[in-house]
Design a binder for these strands. Structure first.
Lengths: 326, 326
DNA sequence: CTGAAAGCGCTTACAG
DNA sequence: CTGAAAGCGCTTACAG
């Protein structure tokens, strides 16, 4: 049914080696032979079998990417950028989320189903990342691990957080809560550092109670209410994600969360969610698409750099504080 | 570095054929040999090279899935279900969106980078689907094509639409607009049919002007305003997607769209977006995860059914009308 | 500039 | 129940 290099070779009256060379743009092929081969390829509608090529080249030409979840527009943007970078590189992108068992991804690498792994999310702890990094190309998105030499793409979370909190302070907010992520990831720690820096510059004391660490959406309301009922007022919120912020907005509206309607809220991500809520959300906009794009490019560089500079590249992308109604 | 069947065979003191048989659960292997092989696999930490297996089996063990976009929670749900169905089947899922050139997907099939294709979205016109279906396993999500024998998973769009419009009529709405999708896909046509049926049963005339066909989000406002300004009132809207509905809500709030705040709105999909808007949106909830799950299962059946019943299966899943604030 | 040949790491008729 | 051997469809030193 499908024709092979053998048939192309016969038709073009050359050897399979020459056909392969044409397929791989080998400069050494004489022009006349190249033409004959290309014609034969056309006539036979030949499509190279990647299964064979992959085995021979010992590469799956596949990259696997781990995401924190599907239901997050920031993630969607990143994937979009990743797909764009994959483009016509000849590589395929396999995407999965971290609710899969972690060893699925390791297995993909072990069994040659993927050549490298891009990790978005704090799915993998430091030990896993370190272990992977010793054997396979690894690129991180949005996070990094102190002490591991890795390529990654992310924004400057500390500065972004500093700017957001400074904005709230400028408006007159005095009691600002940071609703942080559940894991001590680099983004959480850096945002925490930016938060502290902004308070310090304003001459305000840092109060650990104002760092809220919910295990899930539901807990946000619980923890914030607890704070308020203990006599600690809240007039500003830095939310770790748009999803957190939309949830807070909803709970305020439904009066489950006992905060004023006009509490200052700035969330991270700045996806389209911040525009469809009512009121619309102020946010630190992350260049999600760019992050995904750069992450894949870093990986493609790694995969194509045979014995070139091994130095890992860090790509820091620009964020933007966008003020909307909160 | 990596050990191969050859090394396992040597260590277990059997032939590579026997190793392969153990790997493939061939019952004919004597228990003692099976044990020896399994031990050797353990000791050598052997991982089979899928590149070789795929070539030999003439299968990539990969499925490609085409989505309409990334930024849509309904799509996210479908992908989540698809991933769950893939589970530990040994297959990988490659996902892409329809803004890629269509021939990328055909090329994946042609070059053995994928064994079958799942099409969500009306990315492919009938001719393309028909052509693909002649050569490769195809499964459709949410849509089907009249006259092509295909497996697909979807809800009963006509009944769902009928129920939504009936609900609006029951509330007293008389002038109901259907903001339809841009393509004459089966879902659009069926929803249109349900819309008409509901009107007919209520003794109301069908007015083609009340079917709005925006090319993009921005056009919704333009087209609806035009209708209203031409003296055709609007008191109910059936929206083709949650995204459309959230956009409508936003434009009403910003007074760009000249409709009353309390216009009845029911949207399709019923993703989490319908809960975070203010007011929250009434919607036909599609079982997105299930749809993705079933689609992948249909595909896996096709790929594993060597010479079994060729009859294509249709999976119709239950929808649900959920009334919220609109 | 080209071809014959070996080989990537598996699986599977075939013979015993 | 098992092994020797062929082969999946490519690529690539090697020799010329």
């Amino acid at each position: 049914l499908m024709s092979s290099v053998k048939e192309v070779a016969k038709r073009a009256d050359v050897s399979v080696a020459t056909v392969s060379r044409v397929l791989n743009n080998d400069k050494s092929v004489k022009a006349i032979n190249r033409t004959k081969v290309l014609e034969a390829i056309q006539e036979l509608n030949f499509k190279p079998n990647m299964l064979a090529k992959n085995l021979r080249k010992r590469a799956s030409h596949t990259i696997v990417m781990v995401l924190p979840s599907w239901n997050n527009p920031m993630v969607a943007g990143t994937v979009k950028g990743a797909q764009r970078a994959i483009g016509s590189s000849g590589y395929s992108l396999i995407i999965g989320t971290s609710d899969w068992q972690s060893d699925i991804y390791e297995n993909m690498l072990n069994t040659n189903r993927a050549d490298g792994i891009i990790i978005f999310s704090s799915w993998a702890n430091k030990a896993i990342v370190q272990k992977l990094n010793e054997r396979y190309p690894v690129v991180l998105c949005n996070e990094y691990y102190e002490g591991i030499d890795l390529a990654y793409a992310a924004i400057d979370n500390k500065t972004a957080s500093y700017e957001a909190v400074s904005e709230l302070l400028k408006r007159g907010c005095k009691d600002i809560v940071y609703v942080r992520g559940a894991i001590d990831s680099s983004s959480v720690l850096n945002r925490l550092a930016g938060y502290k820096q902004a308070l310090a510059e304003a001459g305000l004391a840092f109060r650990p109670d104002y760092i809220i660490k919910p295990a899930n959406h539901q807990q946000i309301t619980e923890l914030l209410n607890k704070l308020v009922h203990q006599g600690m007022p809240v007039d500003g919120i830095l939310a770790h994600s748009d999803l957190y912020a939309t949830h807070i907005l909803k709970e305020i509206k439904e009066r489950a969360l006992h905060l004023k309607h006009n509490v200052g809220i700035i969330s991270f991500d700045g996806s389209y969610l911040t525009e469809i809520t009512n009121p619309s959300l102020s946010a630190i906009v992350q260049p999600a698409e760019q992050i995904g794009f750069e992450a894949v490019n870093l990986m493609l560089q790694k995969l194509n750099n045979t014995k070139q500079s091994k130095k890992n590249e860090l790509v820091i992308l620009a964020h933007k504080l966008v003020i909307r109604e909160t």
